[in-house]
Structures are given as structure tokens and as C-alpha cells.
Design a protein around this nucleic acid. Structure first.
Length: 315
DNA sequence: TTCCAGGGGTAGA
DNA sequence: TCTACCCATGGA
């Protein structure tokens, strides 16, 4: 029996739902999917109890001053209270509703236009409910075009994710345990991640065996430099990937220097001449611990306000 | 066919 | 710390 309930979450004020869900390309990577018509994000989740549920996340009551996030939950059978609590926690975590950006907003307000746009509720970068998913997806963004990233993640989810019982075309993001138990040759052949499949398979095995507690990094209070060291110790994670992952856990003091960053800096600040990475990074030095968010907003503005550079329409 | 993408690992200096 | 070289994959 299909059971449907609707949950409501109260985000902080200000909060931009579209600005958060479309903050970067993550909404386009399965199991996430954006429905432009209903302006909602869809996702299948496997709860700790083992139940697989479908979530549709959207913004309610746009005319109201206080925003409300609606979550339609579809499941087989009635959900227990602790399962509902878990869904709330995961959605809140993805949308980063608990993150305090007030200091960053104050800085932006003082700088005036265009930075004051951020204070309308931008700056919350969509993430996955698990750090494992974010790390795997980040590895899949390295040295590949965005279409390639989407393909790798799609194959990973569709082959190794758990299907949603009421619609088997939809899947969860696979657990480390599932990937770890898959023979490497099969995994490599199915997901076609190139050399990245070694990194993802090894990471999964380390987590499944208990050798690595990846999720603890997400909530650690250690200094950013220490967390960066831990991230760099993961095979497949270099400086770019580590900075991207630090951003996803609320540490914005590092810039993710990739081809997008270099192209942007060359065009915007260095008159067509490619600067060194160090020279380019100095542009954001006075943003202190908010460098990443400042850079990301600026590049967003530069490339047509809405779409991330060199990405297909993703939000 | 060649280039290169939201780079990273490794060896050697 | 820096550089050179190699690394699968697939779109342009």
C-alpha cells in the first residue's frame, strides 16, 4: 500500500529555495532531479530502517513573508515517527537550514551591490545527506566535462542504487557497502568512470570495512587545515576536490581551483592572460573565511546570473 | 583525429 | 614545494 504524507520545514529567514537547490550542479546529479514545471526537487532515499521512500521537495506559500519548505513523502506502508524525523533531518541537512550565514550576509550588505543580492537568502550550497555521496560525486567532477560527470553518476546510481519499489526507474544513491561488495571488474565495466572507478571502489571498501569514518569529517570541529589533510588522504581527492568538499561542510576559506576558476579569472581580472593560481586566489583574500561563497556568487553573476559556467541549464 | 574537461597520483628534483 | 608525465572516458 502506497502511503503519502506531507511534511513542512521552516527555513531560516532569509532563505531562497531556488537559490539553494540551484546553487551548483548537484541538483542535476542522480538521485537528485529537478522538475522545472513544478519547481521541485525529487529524490529517493533509503532510511536507516531499510525503507525506501520518494521525496518531493518544494517551496510552499511563495506569497507569504515566511517561507515554508514542503516535502511530499511517498512510501510503502505507514512511516514511523523516527523515520519521519530522519527524513526531516536529511532534507534539512541537504538544504543546510541550520547553517548560520549571518556574518557573511553582514559582509555582503556592507559591500553593497551586487553583493547585497546574496543577503536575500543565497549562499546555501546544496549537498547530499551523506558525505560519502558528496565525496564520490566530487571525484566524478575531476578532469571531465559536466556531461561526463552526470553520466558516471547516473550509471552508478542506476546499477548499484536500490530501486524505489513503486517506480523501479528511480534509485537511491548506493551505499559504500554495496559498492564494496561488487567485484571491481564488474564495477569498473558498468560505471565507466575511467581511472576514477579505482578511487570510488577503494573508498567504499575503506568505509565498509570500518577503516575510514568518512561521515565524522562532516561534523568535525577540527580546523579547516586539519580537515583538508584528512580529505587529501583519500585517493582521488586533490586540492580542487578537497576545497569543494570543505565548501560542502561549511568551510569556505579555500577556493576550488579548477578550469572554470582559471578561465574566469583570466577573463575577468587578468585581461586574457592566465595568472598563476596563487596570484588569482589573492583576489578573494579579503573575504577571509568566506572566500568560496564570494567567488561562487561572483562567477554566477558573471555567467548570466543563473547558470553555472560551462554547465547545461541546471537550475 | 586531436584536444581537453568543475584534476590527481607518483616520482624525482 | 614544484614540475613532468601518465592516467580512462567521452564530448566537441
Amino acid at each position: 500500500m502506497i502511503n503519502e504524507i506531507q511534511l513542512q520545514l521552516t527555513p531560516p529567514v532569509p532563505f531562497s529555495f531556488s537559490g539553494t537547490v540551484g546553487s551548483h550542479g548537484w541538483v542535476d546529479l542522480l538521485p537528485n532531479a529537478w522538475d522545472a514545471e513544478t519547481k521541485s526537487m525529487r529524490r529517493v532515499e533509503k532510511l536507516s530502517s531499510g525503507k525506501v521512500v520518494k521525496l518531493i521537495i518544494f517551496e510552499e506559500c511563495k506569497e507569504e513573508v515566511t517561507p515554508v519548505i514542503g516535502v511530499n513523502v511517498e512510501s510503502q506502508g505507514i512511516l514511523l515517527e523516527h523515520e519521519i524525523t530522519e527524513i526531516r533531518t536529511r532534507v534539512s541537512d541537504m538544504l543546510r537550514l541550520d547553517e548560520d550565514l549571518s556574518e557573511f550576509y553582514s559582509l555582503c550588505a556592507r559591500r553593497g551591490a551586487p553583493w547585497d543580492k546574496i543577503t536575500k537568502g543565497l549562499g546555501r550550497m546544496l549537498r547530499a545527506p551523506t558525505f560519502f555521496e558528496d565525496v564520490v560525486k566530487t571525484i566524478c567532477t575531476t578532469n571531465v566535462q559536466w556531461g561526463g560527470t552526470k553520466g558516471m553518476v547516473k550509471r552508478l546510481v542506476e546499477v548499484y542504487g536500490e530501486p524505489y519499489p513503486n517506480d523501479e526507474t528511480m534509485h537511491t544513491f548506493p551505499s559504500p557497502e554495496i559498492i564494496a561488495t561488487a567485484p571491481f571488474d564488474d564495477f569498473h565495466g558498468y560505471v565507466r568512470m575511467g581511472y576514477r572507478s579505482d578511487y570510488v571502489h577503494l573508498l567504499s571498501k575503506r568505509i565498509a570495512s570500518g577503516e575510514l569514518d568518512l561521515e565524522s569529517i562532516k561534523t568535525s570541529s577540527l580546523p579547516t587545515s586539519e580537515l583538508k589533510k584528512q580529505l587529501l588522504s583519500i585517493k582521488g581527492v586533490g586540492n580542487y576536490a578537497a576545497a569543494n568538499l570543505l565548501m560542502l561542510i561549511g568551510r569556505y576559506d579555500e577556493l576550488a581551483i579548477d578550469s572554470i576558476f582559471r578561465t574566469y579569472m583570466r577573463e575577468r581580472y587578468f585581461k586574457g592572460v592566465l595568472p598563476s593560481d596563487k596570484e588569482a586566489a589573492l583576489i578573494y583574500d579579503d573575504w577571509g573565511k568566506w572566500k568560496y561563497l564570494a567567488y561562487w556568487f561572483e562567477i554566477w553573476e558573471y555567467y548570466n546570473n543563473q547558470s553555472p559556467p560551462q554547465s547545461e541549464q541546471s537550475s
